[in-house]
Every structure is written in structure tokens, then in C-alpha cells.
Design a protein around this nucleic acid. Structure first.
Lengths: 238, 238
DNA sequence: GCTCCTTTGTACGCCAGCGCACACAAAATG
DNA sequence: CATTTTGTGTGCGCTGGCGTACAAAGGAGC
């Protein structure tokens, strides 16, 4: 049970990897590999889309930003997806913020070229449609989850989703950053981090999270994780 | 400031109404006008899409259903949209539940025909892409709203969105039903209904809501309403 | 080694909203 | 007109999570 897959086309990104060779050839020369650092901004609310990104080892977050500056995560995007779906859907400007959450590499494509290559349908368009559907599920579930589930449950969900998208069982995220994603207090996250450590599910020191007991985490999470996960698996299996 | 618009093609639904005549002619013979009653189920989680719906006077809700049966609203769909977007996006089965929230009429189209007519792009496909983008914004904002805002604010948002989608200033919804949509207690909604009435913003007796002071409601709501509203207006102006 | 900064641990008072329970009124039904 | 159902008003104790504050524990640089 993992989102990782053997590169077939030399791409780890599942969307690119899922393209048939001719479609990939058309796209290939427009793709540029870029390295993203933690907190790099990929899109800003109200700003035009210049590029979209297909994460390889990097991972991004979609954030809603409120007037007072508060921002919370509404979706996370790793190698299973693309950052900038609205550009494909015909939006000229981003409605949300997108930032790099875990540093790494991604393939960058100009928004204009994306539109050009998907304008009349085709395999890339089909893949992005399916991805859009998966993203809908992720957001819908998060809306419900945010309303009904405890911070502890949601924190477990977050750790699991991140674990799915990174290499290995270890990644870097501070309580502070995580609390912002979850829309909670930093000290609330600290308490939960303590609970999860004492339960032997993770180890967590100074930003260094290690997943020790995935099964246990899945039990401690709400059903939302499994629902989203299943949807991604079934839609992007193709 | 209203989502309503003069029918150009004899359709109140803004997507159908926005189609150029040739595209509309192709679609027309496959559309069947249906009357929907409150709480009619349009799609069920896990079940195949047979039809999609373009509401005229009816209004629908998209709900996430949890294992324990709890369901909460993740989006509402009126004449500005279509129920069953995932069918257009290539999903065979619905991931969520869709029900009729306000009775009325809608144009029904078979999911297969929708796919056929949008397969290679075209005006309907373009419109649905833009609508998908608007729906993303609605869901993203709701996820944030559910996390950060009070029930009172969210209740005002809900009333405003509904007001935008129905004829006139009056509609029917019980505290019980509203509380389910908001993911709150029935008695919590009752208290807030009282507050809003005492403030002269609405009148509300036995399911009969009348919007008395829209401006006031907009002030009592969080910014989420305005954000979603602006996005819909700008994307569907076309 | 010492200093500074980031990150974490912990505590305390507070309140929005929950779960539950019960009473009552208006409408529907027989 | 009596009875049942549906919808509303209200109260009470409880708790998850907030806002805030402060101190301690790594690390990074000098």
C-alpha cells in the first residue's frame, strides 16, 4: 500500500508516468526540472498562473488565505498530482496559494503550453480530469473532517498523507508549521505529538518526524484518510 | 448583485444558458425536464452515475457521508451549476451523495451523453471546466470555514448562498436540516436563528425563512461567502 | 565554551459548541 | 376534536481546543 510506483518513463510523477509515449514526447521538451525549497511560493491568490508543477520528490500544499493572514491547508499535492489544476480548467489567476511543503524536485511546465496541449482533449487531459476528481474528494473530505474530527485524528491523517508522498519514513516539519496547516494552535500540536510518541506511533524531535507504526497511525486517524486514499488509488490506477 | 440572469435560450440554468446555439441544439434533444422533491437522492456514494442535472429552480447539496451515517454539506448547487461534475471528469461512480435541497425543476441528461458531447472539448466542456474551478473554490473555502469560523458566521453564509439560488426572499428549511448541513447541533441552530431574528436580519418560523436584511446578513457572515461569490461571478460571467 | 535563536514542553483560565433532556406549540392525521 | 408528528425553545453540565505566557532544551555560529 503505497503511492510510489516504478518509473516507466523515467518520471516519478504519476501523471507524467501515466502518459502514453507519443503524448509524453509532445510534452517533454516543454518540461523543465526545477528544485523547490521549503516554503517556496508556487502560486499566489489573485496572481496569474505562469507555470504548473508536476512534483517528483517535492511536495506542495494548497492554502486558503484569509484577510487576517491566517492560512490553512485545503489539499496537499505530491507525485500523484499537479500543482495548478485551475490553469488547466481555464482559470487565468490562482484563487489560492500554493507553496512547497517538502523540498525536492518537480517538472515545471508553462501554463500556456498546458492549455495548448489539452485544449482538444487527449490522454493528458483525461489524466488531469481524473486527477481533478481525486482532488475534489480530497477537499470534500477535508471540509467534513475539519468540521467533525479532533485535532489528533486530523494530525494522524496529515502525517499519513505526507508519509505517502515522501521517500522513506522520515521527514521534516515543525509543530509550528503543522499547526498552521491544520488550522490549530502550535501548543495543541505539541501535546498531540507527545501523545503519539508515547503511544509509540512516531518519534518527533525538533522537526524530525519518523513514522514508527503506520498501522497504529491509521487506527488513530479518522476514516477520512482511508476514503481519500482509496479514491486516489482507484482513479489513478489506470 | 444576484446570480439570476435573464434567460437567453429559455434556460434559467446558467451553464445551459451560456451555451452558443449550435452546441445547445446538439444537447437539447437529450435534455429532459424533471421535477425534484426535497430530499430526493440524485447520486449515492459508490453508485454509478446515470444522470447529471442542471437545476432550474431546484437546488441541490453535495454531502459527504461518514460510516456512522453523519452527513455534512460540502457544496451546494443551484442554477449556476450542474450536479454530477465528476461524471464529466471521467468518474464512473459517485464519491459523494447529492440530494435535492429545495424542490423545483432541473434538466436531466444521461451521464453517457454528457461524456460523448464533451469528449473532444467544445463550449460545454469549457463551461464545465470553469464551473469545476468555481466548485473547487467553494469547497476549499468551506474546508477553511469549517475549521475557523463560528456556527453563526457559517449559518449566515449558508443562508446567503441559498438566497442567491432561490426565487424571492423566502424559502423552507428546518433547523434540523440546516444543522445537519452545517454539521452542528439542532439546538445550536435554534439559538442562532433566535439571535438573527432578534437582530432583524431574518424571520424564521417552522421552517419558513425570510431574508429581511441581506446587507446585515452579509456583515454577520464571514468573508468566505464573499470570496466564493466573487469567484463564481468572475468565472461564470462569460 | 558561550550566545542566540529556533523549537518544544507545559500550564492556566476561558468559552463555543457538544450531548442530552425536556417542555411546548403548531401542523398534520385520523 | 383528539392524537400524533414535526418543529422550536431552553437549560445544564462537560470538554476540546483556544489565547496566552513562560521556561527549558537542542542546534548553529562565534
Amino acid at each position: 500500500m503505497t503511492l510510489r510506483s516504478k518509473p516507466k518513463n523515467g518520471f516519478r510523477n504519476r501523471l507524467l508516468n501515466g502518459l502514453p509515449p507519443p503524448a509524453l514526447r509532445r510534452l517533454r521538451k516543454h518540461l523543465k526540472e526545477v528544485t523547490l525549497s521549503r516554503r517556496d511560493s508556487l502560486h499566489e491568490p489573485g496572481k496569474p498562473f505562469r507555470f504548473v508543477y508536476f512534483p517528483e520528490t517535492a511536495m506542495a500544499s494548497l492554502l486558503t488565505v484569509l484577510k487576517d493572514g491566517t492560512q490553512t491547508e485545503v489539499a496537499s499535492i505530491g507525485r500523484e498530482g499537479m500543482v495548478g489544476l485551475p490553469a488547466f480548467l481555464g482559470a487565468k489567476r490562482s484563487a489560492r496559494r500554493a507553496i512547497c511543503q517538502m523540498p525536492g524536485t518537480a517538472w515545471r511546465l508553462s501554463a500556456a503550453e498546458l492549455v495548448r496541449q489539452t485544449h482538444r482533449g487527449g490522454p493528458l487531459s483525461d489524466l488531469l480530469h481524473r486527477y481533478a476528481q481525486a482532488l475534489f474528494t480530497q477537499m470534500a473530505q477535508l471540509a467534513t473532517c475539519n468540521r467533525l474530527h479532533t485535532i489528533e485524528q486530523r494530525c494522524c491523517c496529515w502525517l499519513l498523507m505526507t508519509h505517502d508522498r515522501v521517500e522513506g519514513d522520515e521527514f521534516y516539519v515543525t509543530h509550528e508549521f503543522l499547526s498552521e496547516m491544520l488550522g490549530a494552535r502550535r501548543s495543541g500540536v505539541t501535546v498531540i505529538a507527545g501523545t503519539l510518541q508515547r503511544a509509540g506511533l512516531i518519534s518527533y524531535t525538533r522537526g524530525r518526524v519518523t513514522i514508527l507504526d503506520r498501522r497504529g497511525l491509521e487506527k488513530a486517524a479518522c476514516e477520512c484518510y482511508a476514503i481519500v486514499r482509496r479514491e486516489f488509488d482507484s482513479l489513478l490506477r489506470a
